[in-house]
Design a protein around this nucleic acid. Structure first.
Lengths: 110, 110
DNA sequence: AGCGGAGTTGCAAACATCTTCAAGTGATGT
DNA sequence: ACATCACTTGAAGATGTTTGCAACTCCGCT
């Protein structure tokens, strides 16, 4: 047994703890995106975006795939979507639990 | 509309992004605990514990209640438990989704 | 009034994360 | 070969978080 689970959990939540990374995950859980597509939507610099994508990659939440001269990212852990909707439910105060999960996540998130 | 939702989400996840806070939430989701009980279990200083509890209080994830000469904390957002079990599922790789939720969280978490 | 247990707060040093700039890689078009 | 688009990497300053110490409050007890 290496790193205790509660510590791995805290690291995991920390990787979700950044506005750009949240938006990236929201966009990617809608559909795969090339980096320049994300860049067109997010108000950050290219190098910053790359850094944030690297954080998500290291945490194995997304994978990148070079196809056709561009780098396409996709979520590799679909359950993240669930985490994001639960977070929204909690923040919306009323916490009506359980899965109205299939609605348009991005539209509902801004 | 004040702070955008994706930013509130990231702040929310950041408050979960600390090993002591994770353990506190796990312990409290088992049952209410007085501060000195938490202190007996966690390997941190009293002042540090107080700071972490303050972080959780500010995020409204826990509430404190002075009863009988001691301060007792309890979780105010039961759905946090769900988040913690989902995180464990994701980290355990196999991501067998959906709720084996009612088992002993603390025993399963160390 | 004075003491000890239970918690909290303020603060500064140590530590981590974020952002930007500059430089670099790789593939594609001319 | 050169330019350009699409991205990534490294490094450094700015900013934020964590930790421990000391000082403090708020009881209840004697």
């Amino acid at each position: 047994m290496g790193v205790p689970l509660y510590q791995r959990k805290s690291e995991f939540f920390r990787t979700l703890g950044h506005p750009a990374r949240i938006r990236i995950l929201e966009l990617l859980s809608e559909r795969d995106h090339a980096v320049h597509e994300l860049l067109a939507v997010l108000p950050i610099e290219a190098s910053n975006l790359s850094q944030q994508l690297a954080v998500l990659r290291r945490a194995a939440l997304v994978v990148s795939d070079r196809r056709d001269g561009q780098v396409v990212y996709s979520v590799s852990v679909p359950e993240v979507r669930h985490l994001l909707t639960t977070a929204r439910a909690i923040l919306s105060g009323l916490v009506a639990d359980e899965d109205d999960d299939d609605q348009d996540l991005v539209a509902a998130s801004n």
